[in-house]
Structures are given as structure tokens and as C-alpha cells.
């Protein structure tokens, strides 16, 4: 009983601390935006370095959806809807969620480890003693880079999954769905608000992943064990939060 209460207490304390930290970051954002070079550097580590995994995964997800969709749709004699099946699944769910999960594993964990190591080797304290605010100099540019990268990566994932190399390759070139039908069905069924909702979702996921990874890194115990724990909990917590938040957002946007 008292154990449960302390777990709850720890959780609330952690959440409160993380919220306070987020506010500190948000306050540092305007200043950080004045230093585009720092953001540029982080965009490279966070965005460009995640590009390959996103492109490859997007392509495979497109292939898988085309194969699975074709099997199911054949039983209803509705293979002409293959394009819209792939496009709707990808744009509404797969692209934002899978990209966010991969991104948490690739970039979020790296961020947590990097910041945790900077803390363990006194680099953050050192900056503070040099009268440089590590939140402005280290944390905020990384947070901004995550916010910019994730929606862009999500769009790239979606285009790869639906486009020539992805679902189109399997559906049209391999399974023989008519090319005009593939695109025609997509045009008829996918609306602009689907795309907008997808991007809103990925932006929300970006805030969550950026927040969790810099928080975990910044408050990691300054030991090798602490850093490894921060890395693991970044991936676990980001993934769970993304999946949970996806349900909430989907329910919210569902009419």
C-alpha cells in the first residue's frame, strides 16, 4: 500500500519536474532560434541521419500493405481500391506512428545518450560555469531539430510507402492493378484534411519525443549505468506515449 503510494508519488514528481523542464525549454526557444547554425547542426544529426531508415522502412511498409491489401480486397472483388487502401492506411496511421517509433529508436535514444554523457563528463556544468546556459545552447536546438525533422520524415515515409517504389511497385507492377485506377481511387478518397491530420499527429509526436529524450538525458544519473538507463527509458517511454497519444488524437479527429 505504502509502496504503491510512493510509486504514484514518484510518477507525479517526475511528471511535474518534466513539465517544469518543458516550460524552461519553451522559454529558451526564441533565443535558440536566433542561432540557426546550432539548429542546422542538430538537423543533420537528428534528421539527415534518420533519413535512410525512414526511406527503407517506408518502402517496405508500402510493399507489405499492398500485398496484404490485395489479398483481402480480392475476396470482395475490390482490388481496384488497393491504392486507396494503401494510401489511407499510410497517411492516417502508418506514416506518423511508424516514423515516430523509428525516430524514437534512432534519434531520441541518441539524443538522450549524448546529453547524458555531456552531463556525466561535466560538459553541462562546465558550460554553466562559463556563464553559458546549457538549456539554450544544448537542449533547445536539439528540441527544435526534432520538431522540424519528424513531420518532414513522416511525409517522406508516406510518399515512399504510397509512391512508385512502395505500394505502387507491388500493386501496379507486380499484382497488375491498373495504374489509372490506383491513382484515381487515391485522388477520389484521400482528402486534404487527411494529410493535415497526419502532419498534426507527427508534430505532436515530435514534441513528445523531443521532450522525453532531452529530459531523460538532462536528468540522467552521471554514470555509465545512468546513461544507458536514460537511453532505454527514452525509447520505452516515447514508444508508449506515441501509441497512447495516437489513440487520443485519432479519437479526437475521428468524426
Amino acid at each position: 500500500m505504502s509502496r504503491n503510494r510512493s510509486v504514484l508519488g514518484d510518477f507525479l514528481r517526475g511528471l511535474g519536474g518534466a513539465t517544469f523542464f518543458l516550460i524552461t525549454i519553451l522559454r529558451a526557444l526564441p533565443g535558440a532560434l536566433l542561432r540557426p547554425r546550432l539548429i542546422l547542426q542538430q538537423l543533420y544529426y537528428v534528421g539527415v541521419m534518420s533519413l535512410i531508415i525512414i526511406v527503407i522502412s517506408g518502402t517496405f511498409v508500402g510493399w507489405i500493405l499492398a500485398l496484404q491489401g490485395f489479398r483481402t480486397l480480392t475476396t470482395f472483388g475490390a482490388t481496384s481500391a488497393l491504392g486507396v487502401f494503401v494510401a489511407a492506411t499510410v497517411i492516417r496511421e502508418m506514416a506518423p506512428v511508424v516514423t515516430a517509433l523509428l525516430f524514437a529508436g534512432r534519434a531520441g535514444s541518441a539524443l538522450a545518450a549524448e546529453i547524458g554523457l555531456m552531463k556525466a563528463t561535466d560538459q553541462l556544468s562546465g558550460m554553466e560555469m562559463m556563464a553559458v546556459d546549457p538549456i539554450k545552447r544544448v537542449i533547445a536546438p536539439r528540441f527544435i531539430a526534432v520538431l522540424i525533422s519528424l513531420p518532414l520524415l513522416t511525409a517522406i515515409f508516406a510518399v515512399m510507402a504510397i509512391g512508385w517504389a512502395g505500394g505502387h511497385l507491388i500493386g501496379v507492377d507486380l499484382l497488375g492493378v491498373d495504374q489509372g485506377t490506383y491513382w484515381g481511387q487515391i485522388h477520389a478518397q484521400i482528402k486534404l484534411h487527411d494529410v493535415i491530420e497526419s502532419i498534426i499527429k507527427s508534430a505532436c509526436f515530435g514534441v513528445v519525443i523531443g521532450w522525453i529524450s532531452v529530459y531523460q538525458g538532462y536528468f540522467a544519473a552521471p554514470t555509465s549505468e545512468g546513461v544507458s538507463r536514460a537511453t532505454t527509458s527514452t525509447v520505452v517511454m516515447s514508444s508508449l506515449t506515441v501509441v497512447g497519444l495516437d489513440f487520443v488524437l485519432t479519437a479526437f479527429m475521428f468524426r
Binding site: 518532414l152 504510397i162 482528402k191 502532419i199
Partner: peptide
């Protein structure tokens, strides 16, 4: 570095445009 990041942002924005104007009606 600048070129790579520029490339990344370009294809990202291009992907958003493709989704908006080529995929969505």
C-alpha cells in the same frame, strides 16, 4: 553539412507537397 541538411529539408517539403497536391484531392 549545410548541403545535406538543405537536401533533407527539400525532399521533406517536397514530400509534403506531393501528399497535398498529388495524393489528396
Amino acid at each position: 553539412l549545410e548541403i545535406l541538411v538543405g537536401f533533407f529539408v527539400c525532399i521533406g517539403v517536397a514530400a509534403v507537397f506531393v501528399l497535398t497536391f498529388r495524393v489528396a484531392s
